[in-house]
Amino acid sequence: MSDLIGILFQFGFFFGLLALGYAVGHYRERMHLRSIATRLASYHDVGVTNHKRLPAGTGPVATLGMAAGCCVVASDYFKTFTASIQNLFGGEMSGLASLITRARQEALLRMIEQAREMGANAVINVRFETAAIGGQEGSKKAGGVEVLAYGTALRI
């Protein structure tokens, strides 16, 4: 009897975490995407490119230095679980893809914010860097993905 309660408790705990991860994770993702969209719209005055140099014939340019933005994100319990199921069959892990995309956009926005503070209206030679931090291979311990965006801030 006590074994049954133990098993039920474990299952309850698991599904509880799954539901919590889904509810909170989903809600936060929606809020974040909305915030990214509004901020992107308000920064349209800053030109961003990953070209190394500006097109010929661009007016006088002042180089202001480097701007960088960084963001570390973690997967929620639901996404981690879905991904482990998807891992059995292969294919795209859409939940994790959207997570990293969000982090990349957030890092890019932070870079643009920093460039604006420097008085720039363009960022050239933008590079993205991704690194897995924390967490150990094959364990579900705290792990996150770091995304860094950096480039050279200019005023044209």
Binding site: L17, G21, R28, C71, V72, S75, D76, K79, G144, E146
Partner: peptide
């Protein structure tokens, strides 16, 4: 890692 989102401390 349960609820997901940004790890502000690590950032």
């Amino acid at each position: 890692n349960i609820v997901g989102g940004e790890l502000t401390g690590y950032t």
